[in-house]
Nucleic acid binder design. Structure first.
Length: 460
RNA sequence: GGCUCGGUGACAGAGUGGUGAUGUAGCGGACUGCAACUCCGUGCACAGCGGUUCGAUUCCGCUCCGAGCCUCCA
């Protein structure tokens, strides 16, 4: 089955084929490590993690790089504000980023290049651009000359004239053209800096991705991803740097995820509705956050709200409950992915909502299946879960677990269930229902069945 | 102003030129000591107005509403 991806450059879905057979190179813009990742940062991570999983079903060699931007104005500002070193800031937030993303059940990328470990290639790239007449030195800065590139603006579908039409930002006087952007800028003595042919300085924002992609993945990569907002200027400028320095193609498929809103509003510092992944994890398990993020197609805006998360929790609970019913079934069946509706959906530009709907369809079939049909259905659900990064935990632990701490213990629940069992045997249904209600008040739902009484924690 | 992109049922969210998305919640029923789970049934959804068409939520145009980007924000 072929994989189709929406390519921002072409503005349409295209059949994906890697440049080198059976080998895929993918680069996704990672975090600037100066604060905690918020849920908006998590969306591309979860989306491209899902793509990473999918690609691995098609190709033997999949290299997925996600950079760490550890030199930046915001980092310097954070260090100054906290009276601490740059390294202590970047180390802390790099570690927390990895922890938070791991909680979302995302696989570690194959490579995690740090900007500060790749300064040399950035200096080389800058030198090459000057050499070829695409960049110039001005007042200690090195700037890329956008007019030197004929098709600058191709990715964002705009021309230099269009950009100037709406220009509302003061243009630094050291720029030849208002659209010129910084490759290298001088560093103050107390700020981090590296020696270069243009004096002690540090790289401009766009430079690191171009240089690190070249350094670690090669001249042309297959997929480059990130949030929509990166299309311009970031990715546009990466293209300019890389194409003008090396010629050839830079990226073959550009992918961009849409934003998410919080309770119907744009997430922004000024509104004060920025939600960090770390804070959300105090209330919802990582898999719930992941499921919520995958519940909309990655190119559609997603409204993130308590309702969405509660729905995600309920839905996951019901799927785990289905798996719980068949937890004793041993699996030794291979699932031919090519025949699977959920696989078809994922291969259609990562249509996760449809893939999830197909999982529901499988769950429904499983409920009605004969004993002989159950193993293969269970295997199919788990195969879908593996690709989506969900349903990989023990069902009973999921249903009986949670993130809250001050809840009734499993031992206390079992004790009450035993009491209720005695009451039922004595036909004291009044007492039995009392216990049921008592547990329900503490968020515990009981289910009587032939095998005995099962319990699970309710989301709210 | 320029460039992109959207408006689907109570809510979330796919998709299609003519039959069903799916989920959550709701309602009715079966099952249950009562529940829960599960099953069965159920709700006249496609912003508005024109056009193309035998037929449009799906194609085209206009209107209204909304979003993102326009120099370092996923």
């Amino acid at each position: 089955m072929s994989l189709t991806l929406y390519n921002t450059m072409a503005s349409k879905k295209e059949v994906f084929a890697p440049l080198v057979p059976d080998t895929v190179t993918m680069y996704v813009c990672g975090p600037t490590v100066y604060n905690l990742a918020h849920i908006g940062n998590a969306r591309p991570v979860v989306v491209f993690d899902t793509l990473f999983r999918l690609l691995q079903t098609h190709y033997t060699h999949v290299t997925y790089a996600r950079n760490i931007t550890d030199v930046d104005d915001k980092i310097i500002a954070a260090a100054k504000e906290g009276h601490r070193s740059i390294e202590s800031v970047t180390d802390e937030f790099t570690a927390k980023y990895r922890e938070d993303m791991a909680q979302l059940n995302t696989l570690p990328p194959t490579l995690e290049p740090h900007a500060t470990h790749n300064i040399e290639p950035m200096i080389e790239l800058t030198g090459k651009l000057i050499e070829k007449g695409h960049a110039y030195e001005s007042e200690g800065h090195v700037l890329f000359a956008v007019e030197s590139m004929a098709d600058y603006g191709k990715l964002s579908h705009r021309s230099l004239e269009d950009m100037l039409a709406g220009a509302r930002v003061e243009v630094a006087d050291y720029k030849r053209h208002p659209g010129d952007f910084v490759l290298w800028k001088p560093a103050a003595d107390e700020d981090p800096g590296w020696d270069s042919p243009w004096g002690r300085g540090r790289p401009g924002w766009h430079l690191e991705c171009s240089a690190m992609i070249r350094e670690h993945l090669g001249e042309t990569i297959d997929i480059h991803g990130g949030g929509r907002d990166l299309i311009f200027p970031h990715h546009e400028n990466e293209i300019a740097q890389s194409r003008c320095a090396h010629g050839g193609e830079y990226v073959r498929y550009w992918m961009h995820n849409a934003y998410l809103d919080i309770d119907g509003e744009k997430m922004s510092k000024s509104i004060g509705n920025v939600r960090s992944v770390r804070d959300l994890l105090k209330v919802y398990r990582g898999e719930v956050l992941r499921f919520a993020l995958l519940s909309a197609h990655y190119r559609s805006p997603l409204n993130f709200s308590a309702e969405l998360l509660d729905q995600a929790e309920t839905t996951l609970g019901s799927l785990y409950s289905t798996l719980s019913d068949v937890r004793d079934i041993e699996l030794d069946v291979e699932v031919p992915l090519a025949d699977e509706p959920f696989y078809r959906a994922l291969n259609d530009d990562l249509n996760t909502p449809v893939a999830i709907a197909e999982v529901h369809a499988l769950a429904k079939q499983l409920h009605k299946a004969s004993a002989g049909e159950k193993p293969v259905l269970k295997a199919r659900i788990l195969a879908a879960g593996k690709l989506l990064g969900i349903l990989e935990q023990d069902p009973q632990e999921w249903l009986q677990g949670g993130v809250s701490e001050d809840v009734i213990s499993a031992e206390a629940i079992d004790a009450l269930i035993n009491q209720r069992q005695d009451a039922k045997l004595a036909k004291d249904y009044g007492r039995a229902d009392e216990i049921r209600q008592e547990l329900l008040d503490q968020g515990v739902v009981l289910e009587d069945s032939r095998e005995g009484t099962k319990w699970r924690r309710k989301s709210d």
